[in-house]
Write a protein that binds this DNA or RNA. Structure first.
Lengths: 251, 251
DNA sequence: CAAATAGTGTCTATCAGACATTATATC
DNA sequence: GATATAATGTCTGATAGACACTATTTG
C-alpha cells in the first residue's frame, strides 16, 4: 500500500521504465490493417513491433500516446468520435508489465488503441525506420500463414486491441473513426465488414444505421465515388453510445 | 519508441514508481459498497483511499493486485467468474499516470477491479490501519451528501471501476461474482438492483436469467433463507458472455 | 441495354416489458 | 388466514433478419 512507503527506501526500488505502445488500426481496401515498425536494434532486431516509446518525466500517459501517434503518423488524436478532419480516435487499452517482457530491464507498457481513417501515405516517423500497414488477418492466427511473430509481447497487445475495436463498434459510434469526415452508408458498412470480417446485408444495415438516433447526420451532398446511384453523404453525429447497438452476426 | 532507447541514458530517466490500486466492490444489504482504507501518513493523512501498494521488482501486475487483495481481504483472486468458494473476480481496470497525481514522486498506478461476495467481516489488512465498506452511492456524486473526497485521484478511479462493473454485468455473467457459491434467482436479482440502482421485475428477470444458456446451473437443492416459497439454488454456469445480454432499464 | 450501388418496403420469428396467476413456505 | 417470495403463463409492441422491389448512376 502507498501508506507503507516509509517502510521502503524510495531509491531501493529498481527503476521501472514506463512506455506507451500503440495499436493503430485502419481500414485499407476492405481489410483491417495495423501499423508496424521494424526494429533496428536488439533485442528483437529486425522484428516488426508496435510503435511506441518512453513516457517523459513531465507528461501524462494520454499525452505520451498522443505525441507518439503524431510522430508516427502525423495524426492528431482526440478521444471523442466525430469530425476531426485528419484526427484519430485514441483511448487507453491495457497495461502490460510481465517482469520479463523486456530482457533489458523492467518495462511497464501502457498500450493505447488508435483508430484512424485510411492515411494517404504510411510514412515512416521522424526516424528513418521502416513502417508498414500489415493485414491484421495475417497477424492474428486466422489465416493459414500466421506470419512472423511480433517483438516482445506485441502480438498479444495487438490481439487485445483488435478485440477491443471489434466489440466497441457494436455499441458505440466508433466505426466512424475509420471514415473520412464525410462518408456514405456503404462506406460505413464496409468498415464494419472489414473489422468484423463478415458480410452484412446492405439493406438491413442501412435501415439500422439511419434509424439509430444521433449516429449519422446528413451533410446534404451526395457522391458517386462508389459507383452506381448517388449516395447521400453523412457526418458522424454527436452520439457516442448506440441504442440499439449494432449486432455482430452469429454471436 | 523502444528502439530509440540508445538515444537516452537509461539512468537519465527519473524512476517511475509503479503501484496497483484496487477497486473492491461488494453488495451488502442491497447496496453497492467499496472497500476503503484510512491513510495514516501524509500526504492526504486521515483521508480514505483505495487499497493498493507497490509492484515488487519480480512480480507481474496481476500478481501484485492479487497479493494486495489477499492482504486486504483474505480473498483469493481468479479471473474467471465461477464457483471459487471464497474467491473474488479480479481484472485490470485502467492505468493512471498524471505527473502530479502523487505529490511525492512520479507514480503510475495500474488500477484493478475486484468483485467479491459479501464478506463475513471487513477485517483490516495486515497493517493496523482501519478499513471499511463505504456506500458507493455516497461516494459518487449521486446523493445530496457527496461525502469527503478520497485521497489522490482515487475518487475518479472508483467512479471508473463502478462504471465498469455496471456495464459489464450487462453482457457477462460477472454478477455471479457478487454471490456466494450457491444462490437463488432472487439473490442474483438483488445484485443487479444494487449495482444498477434500479428495481427490476422479478418475473421477467427470472425468465430472462434462466433462459440464457450457460448462465445458471441448478444445484439441486433449495433454500428458504429469503422467506416465502423455497427457492431453487443455482451455481454459476460456464458461460462468460451472455447472449442475449441483460438490459439495463431506460438505457 | 446490363451492371452496379442506393434506398424503401414487407413479412415473420423472436424478445422485452407489463402484468395475471398459481405454488409453497413462515407467522 | 395473512403475507412473503418463487415460479410459470399471457399478451403486446418493437425489432432483427430475410428478401422483394424501385431508383439512379456508369459503361
Amino acid at each position: 500500500m502507498i501508506v507503507a512507503m516509509s517502510r521502503y527506501d524510495r531509491s531501493a526500488f529498481p527503476p521501472f521504465a514506463v512506455t506507451v505502445d500503440l495499436v493503430v488500426l485502419t481500414v485499407r481496401e476492405h481489410a483491417l490493417c495495423a501499423l508496424l515498425v521494424r526494429r533496428g536494434e536488439p533485442p528483437f532486431q529486425g522484428y516488426w513491433a508496435l510503435p511506441g516509446g518512453f513516457v517523459r518525466p513531465d507528461e501524462g500517459l494520454a499525452e505520451a500516446a498522443s505525441r507518439e501517434l503524431a510522430e508516427e503518423t502525423g495524426l492528431r488524436a482526440h478521444s471523442t468520435p466525430g469530425q476531426g478532419s485528419a484526427g484519430a480516435h485514441l483511448e487507453q487499452l491495457a497495461t502490460y508489465g510481465h517482469p520479463q517482457r523486456d530482457p533489458r530491464m523492467r518495462v511497464v507498457s501502457v498500450a493505447h488503441l488508435a483508430l484512424a481513417p485510411d492515411l494517404p501515405t504510411p510514412r515512416p516517423g521522424g526516424d528513418a525506420r521502416s513502417a508498414r500497414w500489415a493485414l491484421v488477418a495475417e497477424l492474428i492466427g486466422q489465416g493459414p500463414d500466421a506470419g512472423v511473430p511480433l517483438a516482445f509481447d506485441h502480438g498479444g497487445i495487438l490481439a487485445d486491441g483488435v478485440e477491443r475495436a471489434r466489440s466497441k463498434i457494436e455499441y458505440s459510434s466508433l466505426a466512424t473513426a475509420f471514415c473520412p469526415p464525410e462518408f456514405t452508408v456503404g462506406e460505413l458498412r464496409q468498415v464494419y465488414e472489414a473489422v468484423w470480417g463478415v458480410a452484412l446485408d446492405p439493406r438491413n444495415f442501412h435501415r439500422k444505421v439511419t434509424g439509430t438516433p444521433g449516429f449519422l447526420v446528413p451533410s446534404g451532398s451526395t457522391t458517386t465515388r462508389q459507383g452506381g446511384r448517388p449516395a447521400q453523404l453523412f457526418k458522424a453525429g454527436g452520439a457516442t453510445v448506440l441504442n440499439p447497438p449494432m449486432l455482430r452476426p452469429e454471436s
